[in-house]
Computed example of a mutant assay.
Amino acid sequence: MHNKVVIKKTADYPVNRWSGGRTTELYIDPAEASYLKREFSWRLSTATVEADQSTFSALPGVDRILVLLEGNVTLVHQEQYQKELKPYEQDTFDGGWTTTSYGRAVDFNLMTRNEYRGTVAYLPLEKQETRTLLDEPPARMKLSAQVIYLHQGTVRVTLDGPEMVLNPKELCCIHNPDATVSFTVANVGPGKANCLVTRIYQPIGS
Rank of each mutant, 00 (worst) to 15 (best):
M111D: 04
P87Q: 09
R117G: 07
S45W: 00
T23P: 00
R156F: 05
P162I: 00
T180H: 03
Q146W: 03
N114P: 01
M1H: 10
Y122K: 02
V188S: 00
Q128E: 09
A121T: 12
N176T: 15
I200T: 07
N176A: 14
D52F: 05
T46K: 02
N16G: 08
P177T: 09
Y102M: 10
V73C: 10
P14Y: 12
D135A: 08
P137W: 10
Y149H: 14
E163V: 07
W42Y: 15
G118Q: 07
I204Y: 01
L75C: 12
P30K: 04
S54D: 06
N187F: 12
A33M: 11
D160L: 03
L125S: 03
G61Q: 07
K192S: 06
L85D: 07
V181Y: 02
P168D: 00
N176P: 02
A47N: 01
L85Y: 06
R140P: 00
P203G: 10
V147F: 08
P138I: 09
Y201E: 05
P168S: 02
A105E: 12
R117S: 15
L125G: 03
Q80E: 15
L196P: 07
R43K: 11
D107P: 04
P60S: 08
S54W: 01
Q80W: 04
Y116M: 09
Y81F: 15
I174C: 07
L196C: 12
T198S: 13
T158D: 00
Q53L: 13
N167V: 05
L36N: 09
A11M: 15
T98C: 08
E170L: 07
T92Y: 14
I148D: 00
E39S: 13
V185P: 01
Y201P: 03
L26P: 09
D63N: 11
L110P: 08
A33Q: 10
I28E: 07
S54E: 04
V120W: 12
A186W: 04
L166P: 06
V185W: 07
S41Y: 11
T23W: 04
A31T: 14
N187T: 14
G71S: 08
W18A: 05
P138F: 11
A105P: 04
R113I: 00
L69P: 06
E70N: 06
N3V: 01
G103H: 03
E25I: 04
E84Q: 15
G21S: 08
L36A: 14
Y13C: 10
K8M: 04
T130F: 06
L196N: 07
T99N: 13
W18G: 05
C195K: 06
N114R: 14
V73H: 01
